[in-house]
Write a protein that binds this DNA or RNA. Structure first.
Lengths: 208, 208, 208, 208
DNA sequence: TATGAATGAGACTTCATTCAT
DNA sequence: GATGAATGAAGTCTCATTCAT
């Protein structure tokens, strides 16, 4: 029982630590989580994708839930930043929204709300709150934009937060498989989504 | 939960539980799948919920993917039927849509597209096609309704299939936790969703 | 991902179920636990010892703590039964106690109290209580015997439950490695223990 | 726990924490090992408790077994020293034993023999011998005391080493949880143990 | 002197699936 | 028609240990 078996554990002799392993784990795991969801992504898969061992991932993050939370928070921060860059450009609201949609459609992602429901049993209340806040940051940014547009008369009066939710919901239509989707290309999808977002169905009689 | 209560007066609903075990498995598993997703629902849980053994479930369905497919197809059929009943009533389009939204918001469900992506690795192409077709039935029904409304001038010209997708995407906003949701009640959510669906943001300048 | 790999899981084609697998798991695991303690005995080891798979053990017991509890309770029941058989024989108290000691010394066992402390974080309160009760049964049996002896004047007045604990504590001396032990044989150990139990150090001045 | 409190007047106890890290590791790890056993105490926990990193512990001790051995040897030396101080005081044997019992009952400890069996697979023969010798030192001290008492006629003739083992075995009764224990307080336990140690059960007929 | 980073081995547990009755 | 018993594969997590700085 004391005999050393063929290979001793421990840090390997040499390796070219590309630079920041923790950042890389976060970057890759966030992509995987967004694409496949929480449960489907195993720590083995993440470790493999990063070229390290499972135990190394656990060195940086105490458990899967913590890694997930960190991934999501970081990702949401990035998304918020990129979205802000686009929205700050000059141009009419529809023009800028179209750019946002185009940017979104390039990354494959599951429904964020579904994912949050999925991880609910695994994360602490603090972690849940952190993710909600990160998500809220994006909605806040969008809502601010809509509020601006309202004050300029670009769009009609409405609950800006609701508009943000509606916008993100419509975004998901564009991400669907071409097989099911009513569109034949990403561009077409982006145009249709924004057009609908701006004017809805043009219904004649507004309900009262 | 399985104990027969006092015995309700009148003709038994379906002929006691005994007769059609397969139907009951389908009914319960479809509920579970829609609420929690594919992977989270174990065959043990389904068997328990039905009061039978796991092996019995395998007697009726060759594997989990087949059970899932059958559940979804059946469920989609039911949804299509119920939706049709609502849409066939008299009244303006917004009025009827509001009824549809209210009906949807009463059942908790995950995003259907997310679920389809989740099961993709487990099902055969035929099963995938069957589920897509079942889903398509609902979209077809909705599209038909929109086509009608267009011909009557109730709403503006647009791709009816796209409108159906947009409608179902907006539906998901209403299902969110109150914590995150911009609404304070189901009723309010339903009204806001339909209002937005009909008129969008009232944007002034339509892009051309 | 759908391709069947070399070997399908499931029940193997044939096997000569010796008789009662659950009983055998209990029998073997109780032996292992008593000899090595809770943490040191892995479920792999138990499964191997029983000639079944780890998953089979989990079929009968939901988790390690439950298996441990069941093992201990069963074992304590057996010990109580065997001890009672010995104590019910005719003969003086010291004679019968010597038989009990000899029987104990044949099985290797760790300190029971240490083991209970070890499992404490893993078991529920109910499981803990069950094990305490099983242990208490043995102490109760011993205490009853001592009470009898007191009423007959065979031994002096004392707290019978304390005597039981003292007796079991002394038993552990006999189980020690010969290297450390002050005895050269099991027989000698048994005699010395009972002799000491009966008369202590023969101290002249009793403290008051 | 590491914060320097107000500053006690007088000469500092040992020369601040800085100087002798190795000693501190030994002191803390011995406490942890005695309280929880070998396997349950991880090197991470020890390092945390000492305010250093795991790697630092490895700087001083080649592996866990070596640290454990050193801890035990040191601890046993301390115990031997403290016990000797008590036994060298004036007074009758029972009086002095009672003091020893009281001192022991203040520190929580697992059964030492159980621990030795637990580490057996991890330590070398030399390490095992070292620990046995350290333990033997205490038994030798006790045995010497008993030998003295015999020569003075304070207690009857018996194997002094056996008496030492018996004494340490009885000590463990006092350490048990109050729930199981037949005593209601530490003092009561100490008195009962020593009383029993001196006179046993007062059995009438001594076996021959 | 001390440590941050990394790892192989192994532990417990879950689950879809199969076979014999 | 239904089920009890059994299993392989995979997943999360812990830990002693090692190396380079």
């Amino acid at each position: 029982m004391n005999k050393p078996s063929k290979r001793q554990p421990g840090r390997p002799k040499t390796s070219d630590t590309s630079q920041n392993v923790k950042e890389q784990i976060l970057a890759l795991s966030s992509r995987l989580f967004m694409e496949h969801g929480y449960e489907k992504v195993s720590l083995d898969a993440i470790a493999d994708a990063c070229g390290v061992t499972k135990a190394s991932v656990y060195y940086y993050f105490h458990n899967k839930a913590e890694l997930f939370t960190a991934s999501i928070v970081m990702l949401m921060g990035n998304v918020r930043h990129q979205t802000k860059l686009i929205l700050d450009r000059p141009g009419s609201l529809p023009e800028r929204l179209r750019e946002v949609v185009r940017a979104y459609l390039q990354v494959r992602h599951s429904d964020f709300e579904s994912m949050l429901r999925e991880v609910r049993p695994h994360v602490t209340d603090e972690q849940m709150a952190a993710m909600r806040q990160a998500e809220g940051g994006i909605h806040e940014l969008m809502a601010e934009t809509f509020r601006d547009a309202m004050s300029k008369g670009e769009i009609g009066e409405a609950n800006p937060l609701f508009l943000s939710h509606a916008f993100s919901a419509l975004l998901m239509i564009g991400g669907r498989e071409l097989e099911t989707s009513p569109f034949s290309s990403r561009e077409e999808a982006a145009d249709a989504i924004v057009a609908f977002f701006c004017s809805g169905t043009h219904a004649r009689d507004l309900m009262e």
